[in-house]
Amino acid sequence: MAKIRLNGMTWDHRRAVDPLLAMQQAFERECPDIEIAWHARSLSGFECTPIDELASEYDLIVLDHPFMGFAARSGCLLELDSLGLADGDFVGPSLATYRMEGKLWAVPIDAACQVAVSRPDLMARIGAAPPRDWLELIRLAQVSKGQGLRLAIGLKGVHSLMTFFTLMANLGTPCAIQQDAALFEPAAARYALGLMRDLLSGCPPEVLDWNSIALHDQMASRSDLVFCPAVYCYATYAEADHVHSLRFHDFPGPSGPRGSTIGGTGLAVSAASYQREAALAYARFAARLSTQTGFAHHHGQPARRECWEDEAINARFGGCYHDTRATIEQCWIRPRYDGYLAFQETGGDLIESHLRGALSEDYLLDRLARLHVGAST
């Protein structure tokens, strides 16, 4: 009898691809009549490719939670409440990010938020401990500069917006998640932008060209980047197979680790799939603790709470999960309304332009506020 063939789409990094391929044999042993062909798109494609387009081609889709508003309205994804998943099984608000209008649209298979990352060898060279708040961060910038080292961050496009969101939430003045509310409190927004400019002054100018992957690559390969306060964690860069393994820490915000903007990925099932039951079987498999433990041992970044507490997993990733747990448990969920992604793409470019000196603070804040209320599709 011919096998059922599912097509899946993820994003192109070993953190995303390798876990799925590694656990495929385990799934096929359990469901020998089902096989999955995985495909990958770039990080930029992951952040902006319309989900309805992917749902017309693929049975299984690894996606980001800002798509949930569109998913709930369009009906392009299958509801997954029948899987019976519980919030307490996943770290922080990971499961909640995929719930919209009272329904669950994806299974958390990867958990992440903005946290700090360091080069342990360079930190040891200057005798510095990871900063616990923004004041200590600025002191580290001063010490590092005196030793010929710099801070780092990735501020390309959307990553500028995520850092702004994180700082606003950390200050206790989070940006609005609904379109019918003012996006931000102006004084707090100006303060957050000032913090970003101060940070930028301690970094090489090319950080404005870096996304999260580029930031990790540069910190792992260069010899002058000692610490980054806020980037979406790629725990695989703490593994021992890197020449210069990185170390992850809680977000050193002005108010401590709270308020970081959650990221991660979820696995969704296309409502257009002709093999819904087979796709649901894989979604159920992907949600299990045993599966996500397997993901972790193949460069993945599991969302199951028990994995974050697992000593063997923490040993493999340099204590990443222990050392960033306080941050992810206090994360903020960014807007997910239908149309938000248009705001995210343009808003990130606007903040980047401001940081490059091309837009005034007044102009930027006015444009962001107007964009927020007019972003609906």
Rank of each mutant, 00 (worst) to 15 (best):
S42R: 11
L137D: 00
T261K: 02
I61C: 02
P186V: 06
S255F: 02
D180E: 15
G259K: 02
C203G: 08
L280W: 03
S221N: 14
D33L: 06
H299S: 12
Y337R: 12
G75S: 09
G148Y: 06
G148T: 01
V91P: 02
A315T: 13
D64I: 14
F164L: 02
H13N: 10
H372M: 13
Y337G: 07
Q24H: 08
L350H: 03
Y98F: 15
L63M: 14
C113L: 07
S42Y: 10
A124S: 13
T324N: 05
D366E: 14
L95S: 10
S255C: 15
R139K: 13
E311V: 13
A188K: 00
S144I: 07
E101V: 07
M168L: 15
L215T: 15
L122P: 03
G45Q: 15
T173R: 10
S290A: 15
H39R: 12
W38Q: 05
S56W: 08
I34H: 04
S56D: 13
D33W: 06
Y234Q: 12
L225K: 03
F285A: 07
G45D: 15
Q142L: 10
C320I: 00
S273N: 07
R29M: 12
I4E: 05
G339H: 07
D110Q: 11
Q25Y: 08
H65E: 08
G84Y: 12
A214F: 02
Q218C: 11
F67K: 12
D241M: 07
A214T: 14
Y232C: 03
K156S: 10
L83K: 09
G294K: 06
G294Y: 04
Q301C: 14
W11F: 14
Q292V: 01
A72S: 14
T236C: 08
A55G: 10
R15G: 03
Y98W: 15
S212A: 15
G348Q: 07
Q301S: 14
Q24W: 06
L149Y: 13
G357Q: 10
G84Q: 11
A129R: 15
T377F: 12
G253C: 05
F343P: 00
T10A: 12
F90M: 09
A152V: 03
S255I: 06
Q178I: 09
C175M: 14
I313H: 01
D89M: 08
L199E: 01
V62E: 11
L199T: 02
A220G: 15
R247V: 00
M196Y: 01
E35I: 11
S376D: 08
L364A: 03
G256N: 05
P93Y: 05
